[in-house]
Amino acid sequence: MIKFSEGSVVVPGEAVAEGKEYRIGQGFYRVGEKVFASRLGILRIKEEDNFIYLVPLTGVYNPREGDTVIGKIEDFHSLGWRIDLFCPYSAMLMVREVPGYVPAGELDKVFDIGDLVCVKITKVTNNKMIDVSMNGPGLFKLNEGRIIKISSQKIPRVIGKQGSMVNMLKDKTGCKVIVGKNGLIWTKGEPKTEIIVNEAIKMIEDLSHTSGLTDRVAEMLDKKMEEYNKNKG
């Protein structure tokens, strides 16, 4: 028996379900018959296979293989750069993972400390050593534009189902947008449209636990863009 409905907020130590027929996923633990939540999040139920799991509402970024992230160059090593991923662990970018020629001993000519780069995580070990790569489409150094940081747990809402939300942001404002899974979002376009995108992202972050968000954001974007076009012309 599940005591809460799908989509309700549960807090640590709350008895969520009773009975052994449920399989439990991330965010729950079992004591005897009872199932308790172990972190603050939203309850999700898969009725067909008696499976319950929890989508966290807060928390730091947990690096995973295959994620595209935005990082900051932190330090030089003999064979690469150390990159701050804005989570408890930093990543290593080897010289061979960077396209193009890198002169030996002159790594700072390519990326200097404080530069922002868009990279892909290729490997995460059990003791949280992270390797990243820049070989691949859409991975490059971020030279211009605007960066904004939000909670990494809200990133799935910014992306939306099959990228619906981020594509809408791009289409309606004409900005380039890159969403890093670690909570950093880069935008580039007309300065004023960049601000509109950032406002929309802030709105998504504040209202991320509500439903029907895409429509509300679309409405807000239409209004702002209309104003922008009027002032421009």
Binding site: V11, P12, G13, G27, Y29, F36, S38, R39, L40, G41, P56, L57, T58, G59, V60, Q153
Partner: peptide, 11 residues
């Protein structure tokens, strides 16, 4: 701690 999203047994 719960607000910070730390996994914990209970409040």
């Amino acid at each position: 701690l719960a607000d910070a999203g730390i996994p914990m047994k209970s409040l």
